[in-house]
Amino acid sequence: MRVTAQKKKETRRRIVECARKLFGDKGFEQTTTRDIAETAGIAAGTMFNYFPTKEALAMTLICEALDEAGTEFDSRLRGDETVDEALFAHVAVGLRHLAPHRNYVGEVLETALSPFAREAVCEQAQQLRVGHLETVGELIALRGPATSRVPGTMTMHLYWTLYLGVLSFWAADESPNREDTLVVLDQSMRLFAGSLSSESKNGEEDHDVVDVTRDR
């Protein structure tokens, strides 16, 4: 029997929603792919046709949250933000949308987005990284120092490292309303914006066009 595209889409959605609920209730570690398949009413083997790993499924949830965040971020930009403020807002809105996934996001991102990773763990992680860095590149192009509008690979690597540092801090932040994360994020983005200024001043860094798809 041929499975229609519509049917496939519905099954995929069902899997994603079941995973969202189980990760939220039991945590990422405690949830097995079998649990998800059972809850979604499909065979475990069928599920692998949709999501090859549990990480890929989690990354799908995270990507969805960050897509919504991206839309909110675009609608909130005033246009007069400095580059560090715009970068701050971009990450801050994302963190807010990631909040329902906070109890497992750390474990997933650690493996999926690690700056040490030579290869993308899954397609979703790769898309997330590319999409995020493209937005960062656009923000720098519009708001960064005139001579640093096309940031080099090292600059973007520095950004990515700071971003993951902020994510890991946020995942473990116990301060009221996670206000410490706001401070860490603010200082990280200022540090990064400062590196753009020094890059343009010293001309020390390579100015290759950043290849955000290099891990693909």
Partner: peptide, 28 residues
């Protein structure tokens, strides 16, 4: 000063909504 994006996130966490939603007018 704190920039507005930081302030907005902070107020949102404290009051449950962005300053421009909580108040009729809010000078950034």
């Amino acid at each position: 000063p704190m920039h507005y994006s930081l302030l907005r996130e902070f107020v949102r966490a404290e009051l449950g909504a962005d300053p421009e939603e909580v108040f009729d007018e809010f000078e950034t």
